[in-house]
Structure formats: C-alpha cells, structure tokens
Amino acid sequence: MTFVYLGCLLLSLAAMVLLDARFRLVFWRDARRATIVLAVGLAFFLAWDAAGILLGVFARGESPLMTGVELAPELPLEEVFFLLFLCYLTLVAVFGARAVMDARRRQTGDPQHAKERAR
C-alpha cells in the first residue's frame, strides 16, 4: 500500500490553494459560494462515477502507486481527491482567465469595462 498517487493529488490541491489565495480567485473571493459550487461539482462527478460503475463502464485499475483503499466497490479513495482537484482546477482556471481579461481591459482603457464597473 503506497501513497504516491494520493500524495501527488494532495500536493496538486495544495498548489491550487496557494494560487487561489495569491490571486483571490475562488475561496478568497467568496468562500460560501465556492464551497457550494465545489460540493455540487464533486457530488455530480461521484454520481457519474457511481452510474458508470453500476453499468460496468468504469472499473478500478490496479496500480502499485495507489493506497488500495476503496470507498465502494470499484471506487478508490484517490478518485474523490482527483474529482475534487478537477472541480477546483476548473474554478481557478475560469476565474483566473476572467481576472486576466479584466486586467487587460483596464490596461487598454476598454470603454466596455468602464461601463461594467459603473454598474
């Protein structure tokens, strides 16, 4: 039983938290809303996995890098952290792109940005 894959996922999540904190993109902007969106996304993908497992589409692969802990048949512990990372990465990417576009608009003096800020 090794923790290599789980450790990589946790390290990646920690990097995402640092990026989020540095630029105030998701949780540091609105923690309550971010928690709700992340929980809904995680629940959706876990339900998706459960449906795939029940239909026989998804199966747990064997790897010496995984813990071997299963939360349910064919659902390894690492899957939950992978899905959490995937949802969080999406939120950081979307809000990060939005922040970059807003910064570019401010630099170029885009009149549309001035109208949006006035609202």
Results as ranks from 00 to 15, higher is better:
108 T>P: 06
57 V>E: 08
82 F>Y: 07
70 E>K: 09
105 R>N: 03
38 L>W: 07
36 I>G: 11
80 V>T: 04
87 C>G: 10
68 G>C: 02
91 L>E: 01
84 L>S: 02
3 F>S: 14
117 R>F: 05
41 G>R: 01
41 G>D: 07
101 M>D: 11
94 V>I: 08
19 L>M: 15
5 Y>N: 05
37 V>P: 06
33 R>A: 12
47 A>G: 13
37 V>A: 10
33 R>T: 08
90 T>L: 08
60 R>W: 04
34 A>P: 01
44 F>G: 10
16 M>K: 12
44 F>V: 11
108 T>W: 09
59 A>Y: 12
34 A>R: 00
29 R>N: 08
13 L>D: 06
24 R>V: 02
115 K>R: 13
117 R>K: 09
44 F>T: 13
99 A>I: 06
99 A>Q: 08
17 V>E: 03
26 V>N: 00
119 R>N: 14
5 Y>R: 07
13 L>F: 14
71 L>C: 05
25 L>D: 00
20 D>N: 03
91 L>G: 07
6 L>K: 02
28 W>C: 07
20 D>P: 01
33 R>Q: 11
86 L>V: 09
91 L>F: 02
74 E>Y: 12
79 E>Y: 01
3 F>R: 07
81 F>G: 04
113 H>G: 13
27 F>V: 00
85 F>Y: 08
117 R>M: 07
94 V>Q: 06
85 F>Q: 05
87 C>F: 03
11 L>P: 07
38 L>V: 05
28 W>Q: 10
63 S>R: 04
27 F>G: 00
101 M>H: 15
111 P>E: 04
93 A>I: 09
19 L>A: 09
83 L>Y: 15
18 L>Q: 09
8 C>Y: 11
86 L>R: 12
71 L>S: 03
77 L>S: 03
88 Y>D: 00
64 P>Y: 14
33 R>G: 11
46 L>M: 08
115 K>F: 10
78 E>P: 01
53 I>E: 00
71 L>D: 04
112 Q>E: 14
102 D>P: 07
74 E>N: 13
37 V>K: 03
44 F>Y: 10
98 R>M: 12
114 A>F: 07
98 R>T: 09
59 A>D: 13
59 A>P: 11
78 E>A: 04
64 P>A: 10
100 V>N: 04
14 A>Q: 15
44 F>W: 14
8 C>T: 10
3 F>H: 12
46 L>G: 02
9 L>M: 03
47 A>C: 11
71 L>P: 01
50 A>K: 03
110 D>L: 01
28 W>K: 09
95 F>A: 12
64 P>S: 08
118 A>R: 04
46 L>I: 08
5 Y>I: 02
40 V>Y: 05
112 Q>T: 15
114 A>C: 09
7 G>W: 06
10 L>A: 04
13 L>K: 08
33 R>P: 04
79 E>Q: 05
11 L>A: 10
22 R>I: 06
83 L>M: 12
71 L>A: 03
53 I>Q: 01
3 F>M: 12
45 F>N: 10
20 D>S: 03
58 F>M: 01
28 W>G: 02
118 A>P: 04
20 D>I: 00
24 R>H: 14
2 T>G: 11
58 F>N: 00
53 I>G: 00
21 A>K: 09
70 E>W: 13
9 L>S: 00
116 E>N: 13
16 M>V: 15
48 W>I: 04
119 R>Q: 15
